[in-house]
């Protein structure tokens, strides 16, 4: 990846290069700072938050905010719901996308251009919010967790990326197996999937993050508070709808405590992404490149 051509070595360390490094480092710090700010708030004490002294690191270190979260069963219920939706959704999405991408990447399939066009067309034109909402409602999915992943199971962009990847694998691989009598399904499972670990990991990350972060679908499809997702709960907590209730219960101090509490909740709901992210990072850059350059 890194260019180590001759001409680069001859380039002296110039002011321009130094400025570029500083610029990139600054940009990275700006991208990182809000997370630092969140953590600093979440671990800071009452007085420090009240006087607005928290900026980069926790002041009067305390884990009270996290202890408070432990006392909120609703949040954990929402977390569980989101985990279920994320796992179920990612499994469904990966299955559907892989099957379609594999089938439509086979050159010998009659009608593959037509079927591909059927899928691609939805990128440019769609029914929109209400007609989709009505379909989901008529199918009886309203206020069920299925509404949070079945209607958005396949992403066209991910499909294109995967189809391109399958199409560019050497044909000879499959031919040999086919001559030996392997079925298409056998080829997919025994030859293509093992070669596609990076791309599948990328797709899994994209889908999982999508489901984890979904706010709007939960907002329009979920009514029952017991089925609220994490983002829905988080939103309620951040805008204070739910805090007002607890303020009444716990009296003075909650209003300021809430700042730490909000940020602690933000931290907890973001940690799963931060944990998965570094593991998959080396894959997804490649995955996106495949999709963007060739798709």
């Amino acid at each position: 990846m890194t260019k180590t051509g001759k001409y680069h070595k001859k380039d002296r360390v110039t002011l321009g290069m130094v400025l570029i490094y500083i610029g990139i480092a600054l940009l990275a710090l700006i991208c990182l700072y809000p997370f630092v700010n969140v953590l600093a708030y979440s671990f800071s004490g009452y007085n420090a938050v009240l006087s607005g002294r928290v900026t980069f690191y926790p002041i009067d270190f305390t884990v009270d905010a996290y202890k408070e979260i432990l006392k909120r069963p609703q949040l954990w219920l929402a977390m569980r719901t989101t985990v279920i939706v994320t796992l179920g959704g990612t499994a469904l999405s990966l299955t559907l996308t892989t099957l379609a991408a594999y089938a439509l990447s086979r050159k010998e399939l009659p009608g593959k251009n037509f079927f591909t066009a059927v899928i691609l067309f939805t990128m440019y034109f769609g029914g929109g919010m209400i007609p989709t909402f009505l379909v989901v409602k008529n199918l009886g999915l309203y206020d069920t967790l299925f509404a949070l992943f079945v209607p958005q199971a396949v992403n066209v962009f991910n499909f294109i990326v995967m189809r391109t990847f399958f199409r560019d694998l050497p044909e000879s691989l499959e031919e040999a197996a086919r001559i030996d009598g392997a079925s298409y399904l056998g080829c997919l499972i025994r030859i293509f999937l093992p070669l596609s670990v990076p791309i599948i990991a990328t797709m899994a990350l994209f889908y999982a993050v999508g489901y984890w972060n979904t706010y709007f679908d939960a907002l329009i499809y979920i009514q029952d508070p017991n089925k609220y997702t994490l983002q829905l709960r988080l939103k309620g907590l951040l805008t204070g709808d739910e805090l007002n209730n607890s303020a009444n219960l716990e009296g003075i101090g909650t209003q300021v405590m809430s700042q730490s509490l909000k940020m602690a909740t933000v931290a907890i709901s973001t940690i799963p992404i931060l944990v998965v992210y570094p593991w998959l990072q080396k894959y997804f850059v490649k995955g996106v490149m495949i999709g963007s350059v060739k798709g």
């Binding site: 769609g126 007609p131 209607p151």
Partner: peptide, 9 residues
């Protein structure tokens, strides 16, 4: 989820 909603238009 995509074409029936188009009819819904």
């Amino acid at each position: 989820f995509k074409y029936i909603p188009m009819y819904g238009i």
